[in-house]
């Protein structure tokens, strides 16, 4: 089976794992907002520090985090390359025909790559440290006010958790179908781009058919276990805000303040040390 780390739970006994899932969801949103507020390299320092300390506290192995980034490495490289060549700012460093590299372009590309890296690594920390059921319960609890305007909050939440559960199953299925098609002489790595894309059609169709069949069986099984029997659904695991959740919230607030203010204070600090 292919090892897909993104969206998978990594069981460990850590403070981050124990945090209330609602708080974790809020923290991730704040973290992402922070990443997008960054506009100079210096502001990446608090972001990176925040992420690094979260990873260390969570006891998730660094290799696992790297693997989650591996999946989007291609996208990062592709977008950075485009940004290097299409941003023509400041001094020209190198040019060949229509291809021009400027130092401004390099800076923009580097910032973008960093931003994507931090974004994916940070958000995958949520799924590493929270079970899909935890995420579901957290989302449901946060979205509770929407129930008043008749939004099926619980159904949305359970759909999400089932999606996460079926990612590895469907990936396994893709591998099986590819092997079956290969055994019948299909080729996936010869020919041009169009031919290769076409070769995946006989993989996608059986995949969809089987996904529908699975959905049908799952619906039957959920019905058999009394899904929607009562409006007053109970929960095995109660969400409780504890002291550590407040501390986490406090630290994250400091993080956001640092991200915003560091570009303003940095010249002052630099000034102070140079005296």
């Amino acid at each position: 089976m292919r090892d897909i780390a993104f969206g998978q739970y990594y069981p460990a006994d850590s403070v981050i794992h124990k945090l209330d899932s609602r708080i974790k969801l809020i923290l991730v949103v704040v973290y992402v907002v922070g990443v997008f507020l960054v506009n100079s390299f210096i502001s990446y320092i608090p972001v990176a520090l925040f992420l690094l300390s979260t990873i260390l506290l969570s006891k998730v192995s660094l290799i696992k985090v790297m693997k989650s980034i591996k999946g989007i490495l291609f996208i990062i490289m592709f977008t950075s390359l485009l940004n290097i060549f299409f941003n023509k700012v400041d001094n020209v460093l190198w040019s060949w025909g229509f291809l021009v590299i400027t130092d401004g372009g390099l800076k923009i590309a580097a910032k973008l790559a960093l931003r994507l890296l931090l974004l994916v690594a940070g958000t995958s920390m949520l799924t590493f440290t929270t079970t899909p059921m935890g995420i579901t319960d957290g989302l449901e609890s946060i979205m509770k006010p929407l129930k008043l305007i008749k939004v099926p909050v619980h159904d949305i939440a359970i759909t999400m958790s089932i999606t996460l559960r079926f990612i590895p199953i469907l990936i396994e299925e893709i591998d099986k179908i590819i092997m079956a098609q290969k055994a019948r002489g299909a080729s996936f790595d010869t020919g041009g781009l169009v031919k290769r894309i076409k070769a995946y059609l006989p993989v996608l169709i059986p995949l969809f058919v089987s996904a529908f069949r699975r959905a049908d069986e799952l619906a039957l099984a959920m019905d058999a276990r009394c899904y929607n029997a009562t409006q007053n659904r109970t929960k095995l695991k109660e969400l409780k805000c504890k002291k550590r959740d407040l501390i986490a919230l406090f630290i994250t607030t400091i993080y956001l303040i640092l991200v915003i203010t560091i570009p303003m204070f940095f010249p002052i600090i630099l000034d102070f040390f140079s005296k």
Binding site: Y9, T131, P132, M133, I158, S161, I162, L164, R165, I169, R214, E217, L218, A221, M222, R225
Partner: peptide
């Protein structure tokens, strides 16, 4: 596989 709802 088709009758389990949760991961844990």
């Amino acid at each position: 596989d088709n009758q389990m709802v949760a991961t844990i």
